[in-house]
Structure formats: C-alpha cells, structure tokens
Amino acid sequence: MVFNLTAVRAPAPGEDPSTTHTLTAVAVRRPYPPSPAGAAALFTHLRALNDGPDQEAVRGELIILWLPMAHRIARRFHDRGEAMEDLQQVAALGLVKAIDRFDPTRGAFESYAIPTITGEIRRHFRDRTWALRVPRRIQELRNEVRTAQRELSELPGSHEPTVADVAAHTGLAENDVVAGMEAMASYKTLSLDAELAFDSNGYHLSDTVGRIDAGYDLAIDREAAKKELRQLPERDKAILYMRFFEDMTQSRIAEKLDVSQMHVCRLIARSCARVREAAMESDRAS
C-alpha cells in the first residue's frame, strides 16, 4: 500500500515569499514489525539529513512504518471511556515525539517509543479527560480501584466488591480505596439541568443547590461595627440603642433626653458616620 505524505516548507533565500512550496513524498508501507537493521538504517539516515524535503520524506516513512505499533498501544486503553479515534491520535502524537527524540546509537527504537507513547496516552487521561482537576495520586487510586472492581466482578460466583474486598485485592488501605471510589464520581460531571433520578416531579440538580443567605452579610456588618460602637460616648450609644433596637422616634428620644429633635438627628448621623468610616478603614486594611 502506498501513502502520500504532504508537507509545506518555507521559501529558500532569494525565492518569492508568497510562493507555497509543497513537498510530496511517496512512502511504501513495510510489514510490521520492521527489521531492526532496516529501522536503524532509516534513523541513522534521518539524523544525517538537514532540514528539508528529504528529511521530511524519511521522517514520514518512519511514522508510517511504526504507526501500527502506536495503534496497538492505544487499543490497550480502549475500555477507559475515550473514543478509539482520539486515543489513536494521541498515540500518533507520542510516536512523532519518539521519532524526533530517538538516538539510534542507544538501542532499539521500540524500547524508547513504547514508554513515550504510553506516557503520552496516560498524560492525556490525566490532563484532558477529567471534568474536575484532582491530584495525580487520586487519579491513580481511581484506576487501581476500577481495575480491581472489574477483576473481582469477573470471578466465578462473584458479588458486588466491597471496600474490604478491593483493599484485600490491591493491597491498598481502605481509606485509599474509598478515595478512589469517590474519584470515580469526579471523572464526569452532571449538568445542573439534569433531572434527579430519584424524583418524579421534574426537579433538577440545580434545585438542590443552596442560596445565599442575606443574614450572613448582616452578621458580618454587625461584627465590623461592634468595635467602634463600644468606643462611642455613653450618651451616643444610648441614643443609637433607643433608635435602632427599641425603635423609638427621634422626637421621643429628644423628650427623654430633654434635647431638641434636631440635635438627636445630628448625633445619630455623626455616630453612624463614625462607625461606618471605622468599618471601611478596617476592611481596606485587611
């Protein structure tokens, strides 16, 4: 089978920069696995070439040559919820990285490429497929617990594995098993518009989310004002108490203190301004 590999190179010095230079290399797909001697010869030839169409052609042939190995590695991860096409794309990206970084003087290509491709796929699962960002250790626990549950469920006469069963099978502590089970719920998230499975009245997940209690803001404001209120003169504190806690009018307060209603109004305004300014200054300082 023949594959056409197309690449675009930059114009050489003196050439028209508006001209697109398309390079087409024809590579014949060889049987997999390739012979060690043939693969080593291709890598040695690749490293000896400078940037250009010849190098791109040899690099493309190496990619085609080893692509079946990358796809085979991708198939190992087929049962983890990702589409096989996506896994093959990630594996191919790992293969390209391995080809670009491989030193043919340091051994067989497979020994370097397999860990590189596998690591690229694992990194994809770790960084791209989780709905929530969780620590790597928790991700690993999730994978261990998931694998153990599947293996235990496939045993003859098996039942739903318990935490103790999984712990005994994996050698993990029961707390770690519980953490791994909880992490399974973090892999994919539910929409807030999702209907509750146990409810037949059409309630959604968003109906279970709490609302902001305005009383919290009031409590915070009171705490912020307490310190300055304690520092007010006794008469000013008494006036504020009668006005805001006993709900007395300014006229009644004026009669009780034998002062004018206008004077009471000025005292209340002055005390409130003093407390407000102190609270705002404290908030700016924090």
Rank of each mutant, 00 (worst) to 15 (best):
N4R: 08
R284G: 08
L5D: 07
E182I: 01
D247M: 06
V259A: 00
G52K: 00
F244Y: 15
Q261G: 07
I268F: 07
A183I: 03
L23N: 05
R75Q: 12
R47H: 13
A57C: 05
G60C: 03
R252Y: 08
H169P: 02
W130M: 04
A57I: 10
E160Q: 01
R222F: 14
D100M: 07
A273D: 09
R136G: 01
G202W: 07
A194I: 04
E246W: 11
L141R: 05
L229Q: 05
P68Q: 11
A25H: 14
L192I: 10
G81V: 09
F125K: 00
H45Q: 05
A39V: 08
L232E: 11
K237I: 12
E56V: 13
E234C: 03
L190C: 06
A7R: 09
A254E: 07
Y241I: 00
A48C: 09
F102M: 02
R72I: 04
W130Y: 13
R76M: 09
R146A: 13
R137C: 01
Q250K: 05
E154P: 00
R211D: 07
P161W: 09
L196T: 14
D86A: 07
V145M: 08
R122M: 04
T208N: 03
E277S: 10
C272F: 03
R106Y: 12
